[in-house]
Every structure is written in structure tokens, then in C-alpha cells.
Simulated assay, not measured.
Amino acid sequence: MSYEAIRVELDASTHVATLTLNRPDKLNSFTRAMHREVASALDKVEGANARALILTGAGRAFCAGQDLADLDFTPGAMTDLGALIEEHFNPLVKKLQSLPMPVIAAVNGTAAGAGANLALACDIVLATKSASFIQAFVKIGLVPDSGGTWFLPQRVGMARALGLAITGERLGAEKAESWGLIWQAVDDADLPSAATHLATQLAQQPTRAIVATRQAMRQSVTHTLEQQLDLERDLQRDLGNSHDYMEGVQAFMEKRAPRFQGR
């Protein structure tokens, strides 16, 4: 399928896919049509031989969330926001969280509303030092969605999460890094190369182990220690039968670099 609101690239030599939100004149805000394109592209990436994904935006913004111009504000026929979220934003967050590969958000500018939380749904967030994260929902009388009320308290604690959510204040990337909201803030000119370098590095690692590590850390939020120990045991048993485990051990014994295949 051809895309109008996004771009998708796959580097066959590195197994790195890049999905670029491409409505720069609208700060890459989402319409229903754009949601359908992103969903199709993520299915395509998953079906290809990709082992890492970069999600970024074109122009001066990463994503400004929902495009309000795509909603109906006619009295008596207003867009049901719950239905919109259930049909589009929630499946997108779940998809990003469940892709069988590491996902890097390369935040190139403003990430506001659902756009901020889509970045947080990725495994690792890199951002330009000029970028900012804004929980803009309160400014139009709404609650953070797209996982915002789940991601924020986990990453920055309840006090900071509530502060960001109920004031809607802008959080700069460098402070976001110092708070633990994102992985790293980099110089603006360095973001593309930093994201590509990291994605290429991760694509060469044992993909199943990365995905299992992600799973274990996320499930720890609701697990007791005993449940987590059991999960670690089960995941380790499964990975112990993988090609990449055997390759890693063999490479260690032969004192050479491992050649992981993601299986």
C-alpha cells in the first residue's frame, strides 16, 4: 500500500526499519487515515525481516497528538472520543508495546498530548535537546490518554506525573532525561545518527532476549517477587533453547564476536 501521511523504510543490510510520521504542516498530528496507515506499516515491518524500529517525525515536531480538525464538533453529533481511542490510539500503543523487536522513539521536536505518550510507549526514547514533552490534555478539558496515566507515574513518580498532567506544562528534553522520563537527550543535529547507531546496534543483538527482558520488566509492575522469580525462570528456560543463546556461549568460548540471528 502507498502512504500519504507516513514514510516507511527498511534497510535490508542492518535490518533496521524507520517509520516517519509525515504531516509536518500539521505537526504530524493524527487523523483516522493516518492511524490506518501506521497500523498497516507496523504490520508490514513486523512481517519483514526487521529487528529494530525507529519511530520519528518529519519537520519540527515529533507528533502533536490528535488532529482536532479530524473531529466533529457538531452539537448532538460530536465525535465519541472513547470510541476514537478504542479504535485507534489504544491499538497503536498496544502494538508498539508488543512488536517482536526493540522500538526507538527519535523525538525530533514537540511531542504533545497523545504524541508524547506514543513516544513513551516505545522501548527507548531519544530526543533532541530542543524537544519537549507536553501533557496538553488538561488545556482542553481532557485526561491523558494513550497510556499517559500509566507511563508517567512509573517513570517519574506520582508527584511529577501529576504536576505534568494537571498543569500541562512543557518539559524540556534535558530535564526529561534527568527525571528518567526518557533515555537520552542529544544535540539536535545528532539525533538521526544517534537513533540509527542505536537501532543498528540493537538489531545485531539477540532479539528474543531483548523482547523477553522488556516483557519481564513491564510485568514486574504488578507482580510479587515470587511471581517475578517464576517468570524469570520460565523466560530463561525458553531462551536457553534458542539459537542465539548457543551462539553467544560458543562465541564466548571461542573468544570472538557473536553473530546473533534474532532466533
Rank of each mutant, 00 (worst) to 15 (best):
L27Q: 07
A127H: 05
V93Y: 02
P75K: 04
Q201H: 14
T224Y: 06
L118S: 05
E177F: 01
D145Q: 09
D67V: 07
V138A: 09
M1W: 06
G141D: 03
L21R: 10
A257K: 13
A165E: 03
S29A: 15
L171I: 07
T74Q: 05
P102K: 04
D244Q: 07
A203S: 11
F252Q: 11
N22H: 15
F73H: 11
D188P: 08
A136N: 06
A112M: 11
A69H: 10
R51I: 08
F137I: 02
V221K: 10
A58Q: 08
R32F: 04
L126G: 09
N117F: 10
K139D: 10
A112R: 08
L53Q: 01
G262Y: 01
D234R: 13
Q201A: 14
Q227G: 14
A33S: 14
T196E: 14
I140S: 13
K255T: 15
A116V: 03
G148H: 00
G240F: 04
L152G: 03
L202P: 00
H88A: 09
S98Y: 00
E169Y: 03
Q250D: 10
G82M: 05
D244T: 10
L71F: 10
G240L: 08
A159K: 05
E174F: 00
G65I: 06
W150I: 15
N49A: 15
S178V: 02
I140A: 08
R160E: 09
P75M: 06
F137L: 05
A64D: 11
D238A: 15
I182P: 00
A131P: 04
P100T: 11
T196P: 02
N241K: 11
